[in-house]
Protein backbone atom coordinates (compact mmCIF):
# COMPACT_ATOMS: atom_id res chain seq x y z
CA UNK A 1 0.00 0.00 0.00
CA UNK A 2 1.31 3.39 -0.99
CA UNK A 3 0.00 6.77 0.01
CA UNK A 4 0.96 9.66 -2.22
CA UNK A 5 -0.58 12.68 -0.58
CA UNK A 6 -2.92 13.95 2.10
CA UNK A 7 -5.17 17.00 2.01
CA UNK A 8 -7.46 18.87 4.40
CA UNK A 9 -10.09 21.38 3.35
CA UNK A 10 -11.95 23.50 5.89
CA UNK A 11 -15.61 24.43 5.76
CA UNK A 12 -14.77 27.59 3.82
CA UNK A 13 -13.50 25.29 1.06
CA UNK A 14 -9.89 26.39 1.56
CA UNK A 15 -7.07 23.91 1.59
CA UNK A 16 -5.57 24.20 5.08
CA UNK A 17 -3.07 21.37 4.84
CA UNK A 18 -1.42 19.51 2.03
CA UNK A 19 1.26 16.90 2.33
CA UNK A 20 2.85 15.13 -0.58
CA UNK A 21 5.23 12.26 0.02
CA UNK A 22 7.84 11.16 -2.42
CA UNK A 23 8.58 7.52 -2.03
CA UNK A 24 12.35 7.91 -1.95
CA UNK A 25 13.21 8.77 1.60
CA UNK A 26 15.87 11.38 1.93
CA UNK A 27 17.94 10.30 4.92
CA UNK A 28 19.49 13.75 5.27
CA UNK A 29 16.30 15.62 6.01
CA UNK A 30 14.39 12.67 7.49
CA UNK A 31 11.20 13.82 5.86
CA UNK A 32 10.51 13.63 2.18
CA UNK A 33 8.18 15.43 -0.15
CA UNK A 34 6.50 18.74 0.47
CA UNK A 35 4.30 20.32 3.12
CA UNK A 36 1.82 23.01 2.15
CA UNK A 37 3.72 23.59 -1.09
CA UNK A 38 2.80 26.69 -3.06
CA UNK A 39 3.07 24.61 -6.22
CA UNK A 40 0.19 22.48 -4.98
CA UNK A 41 -2.26 25.36 -4.58
CA UNK A 42 -3.82 24.85 -8.00
CA UNK A 43 -3.98 21.10 -7.56
CA UNK A 44 -5.70 21.64 -4.24
CA UNK A 45 -8.39 23.71 -5.91
CA UNK A 46 -8.88 21.12 -8.65
CA UNK A 47 -9.03 18.29 -6.15
CA UNK A 48 -11.52 20.15 -4.04
CA UNK A 49 -13.64 20.83 -7.13
CA UNK A 50 -13.68 17.16 -8.06
CA UNK A 51 -14.51 15.99 -4.54
CA UNK A 52 -17.19 18.60 -4.16
CA UNK A 53 -18.86 17.74 -7.49
CA UNK A 54 -18.77 14.01 -6.89
CA UNK A 55 -20.06 14.40 -3.36
CA UNK A 56 -22.99 16.40 -4.70
CA UNK A 57 -23.75 13.69 -7.24
CA UNK A 58 -23.53 11.07 -4.50
CA UNK A 59 -26.00 13.04 -2.40
CA UNK A 60 -28.39 13.75 -5.24
CA UNK A 61 -28.55 10.18 -6.50
CA UNK A 62 -28.18 8.27 -3.27
CA UNK A 63 -29.71 10.26 -0.41
CA UNK A 64 -32.64 8.58 1.27
CA UNK A 65 -35.07 10.30 3.63
CA UNK A 66 -33.49 8.38 6.49
CA UNK A 67 -29.86 8.71 5.59
CA UNK A 68 -27.46 10.88 3.69
CA UNK A 69 -25.31 9.14 1.16
CA UNK A 70 -21.56 9.61 1.50
CA UNK A 71 -18.80 9.63 -1.08
CA UNK A 72 -16.06 7.20 -0.07
CA UNK A 73 -13.60 7.24 -2.92
CA UNK A 74 -13.06 7.68 -6.62
CA UNK A 75 -10.46 6.09 -8.85
CA UNK A 76 -8.74 6.58 -12.16
CA UNK A 77 -6.47 4.07 -13.88
CA UNK A 78 -3.54 5.51 -11.91
CA UNK A 79 -4.64 6.31 -8.38
CA UNK A 80 -7.48 6.24 -5.91
CA UNK A 81 -8.71 9.21 -3.88
CA UNK A 82 -10.26 8.52 -0.48
CA UNK A 83 -12.64 11.04 0.98
CA UNK A 84 -14.06 11.72 4.41
CA UNK A 85 -16.24 14.61 5.46
CA UNK A 86 -16.84 15.38 9.12
CA UNK A 87 -20.27 16.53 10.27
CA UNK A 88 -18.68 19.92 10.92
CA UNK A 89 -17.76 20.27 7.27
CA UNK A 90 -14.07 19.47 7.46
CA UNK A 91 -12.98 17.41 4.44
CA UNK A 92 -10.03 15.07 4.36
CA UNK A 93 -8.63 13.34 1.33
CA UNK A 94 -5.86 10.82 0.69
CA UNK A 95 -4.48 9.91 -2.71
CA UNK A 96 -3.17 6.35 -2.80
CA UNK A 97 -2.32 3.61 -5.27
CA UNK A 98 -5.09 1.36 -6.58
CA UNK A 99 -4.17 -1.53 -4.29
CA UNK A 100 -5.26 0.54 -1.31
CA UNK A 101 -8.99 0.12 -1.31
CA UNK A 102 -10.45 1.59 1.80
CA UNK A 103 -8.98 4.24 4.06
CA UNK A 104 -12.17 5.40 5.78
CA UNK A 105 -10.93 4.23 9.18
CA UNK A 106 -7.60 5.94 8.70
CA UNK A 107 -9.23 9.21 7.62
CA UNK A 108 -11.55 9.12 10.60
CA UNK A 109 -8.57 8.37 12.84
CA UNK A 110 -6.62 11.33 11.54
CA UNK A 111 -9.66 13.50 12.07
CA UNK A 112 -10.48 12.38 15.59
CA UNK A 113 -7.08 11.48 17.01
CA UNK A 114 -4.85 14.03 15.33
CA UNK A 115 -6.91 16.97 14.08
CA UNK A 116 -9.31 17.20 17.00
CA UNK A 117 -6.65 16.44 19.61
CA UNK A 118 -3.86 18.66 18.36
CA UNK A 119 -5.60 21.44 16.48
CA UNK A 120 -8.99 21.81 18.13
CA UNK A 121 -7.86 21.14 21.68
CA UNK A 122 -4.68 23.15 21.22
CA UNK A 123 -5.44 26.70 22.34
CA UNK A 124 -2.41 28.07 20.50
CA UNK A 125 -3.71 26.90 17.14
CA UNK A 126 -6.59 28.51 15.30
CA UNK A 127 -9.57 26.32 14.43
CA UNK A 128 -10.90 28.72 11.86
CA UNK A 129 -8.24 29.35 9.27
CA UNK A 130 -8.01 32.62 7.39
CA UNK A 131 -7.76 32.25 3.61
CA UNK A 132 -4.19 31.37 2.78
CA UNK A 133 -3.21 30.29 6.28
CA UNK A 134 -2.27 26.66 6.81
CA UNK A 135 -1.64 24.19 9.56
CA UNK A 136 2.07 24.54 10.35
CA UNK A 137 2.06 23.10 13.81
CA UNK A 138 5.02 20.73 14.11
CA UNK A 139 3.42 18.13 16.32
CA UNK A 140 0.49 17.75 13.94
CA UNK A 141 2.85 17.35 10.97
CA UNK A 142 4.90 14.76 12.83
CA UNK A 143 1.87 12.72 13.88
CA UNK A 144 0.33 12.72 10.41
CA UNK A 145 3.67 11.70 8.91
CA UNK A 146 4.07 8.90 11.38
CA UNK A 147 0.55 7.62 10.74
CA UNK A 148 0.25 8.00 6.96
CA UNK A 149 3.75 8.60 5.64
CA UNK A 150 6.07 5.98 4.15
CA UNK A 151 7.45 3.71 6.85
Amino acid sequence: MTIFSFWIFDRHCNCIYSREWTQVLNPATESSGTINAKANEDNAKLLFGVLFSLRNIARKVGDTPEQENTLNSFATAKYRAHFYESPSGLRLCILSDLETQNLQTQLRDVYSNIYVEHIVKNPLSPVDFKPGSKITNQRFIRLVDRYLGPQ
Partner: peptide, 28 residues
Protein backbone atom coordinates in the same frame (compact mmCIF):
# COMPACT_ATOMS: atom_id res chain seq x y z
CA UNK B 1 -33.80 12.53 -11.12
CA UNK B 2 -35.36 15.09 -13.42
CA UNK B 3 -34.19 15.43 -17.03
CA UNK B 4 -32.37 18.58 -16.07
CA UNK B 5 -30.56 16.89 -13.20
CA UNK B 6 -29.45 14.13 -15.56
CA UNK B 7 -27.90 16.75 -17.83
CA UNK B 8 -26.08 18.35 -14.90
CA UNK B 9 -24.78 14.99 -13.74
CA UNK B 10 -23.49 14.20 -17.23
CA UNK B 11 -21.79 17.58 -17.54
CA UNK B 12 -20.18 17.24 -14.12
CA UNK B 13 -18.79 13.79 -14.82
CA UNK B 14 -17.48 14.97 -18.17
CA UNK B 15 -15.55 17.77 -16.47
CA UNK B 16 -14.37 15.74 -13.52
CA UNK B 17 -13.15 12.98 -15.84
CA UNK B 18 -10.52 15.26 -17.36
CA UNK B 19 -9.55 17.00 -14.12
CA UNK B 20 -9.08 13.69 -12.31
CA UNK B 21 -6.31 12.71 -14.71
CA UNK B 22 -4.57 16.06 -14.12
CA UNK B 23 -4.46 15.27 -10.42
CA UNK B 24 -2.39 12.13 -10.91
CA UNK B 25 0.27 12.25 -8.15
CA UNK B 26 3.77 13.05 -9.34
CA UNK B 27 5.06 9.86 -7.76
CA UNK B 28 2.94 7.78 -10.19
Amino acid sequence: LSANEHLILAGTIHGVFAIASKLTPTAV
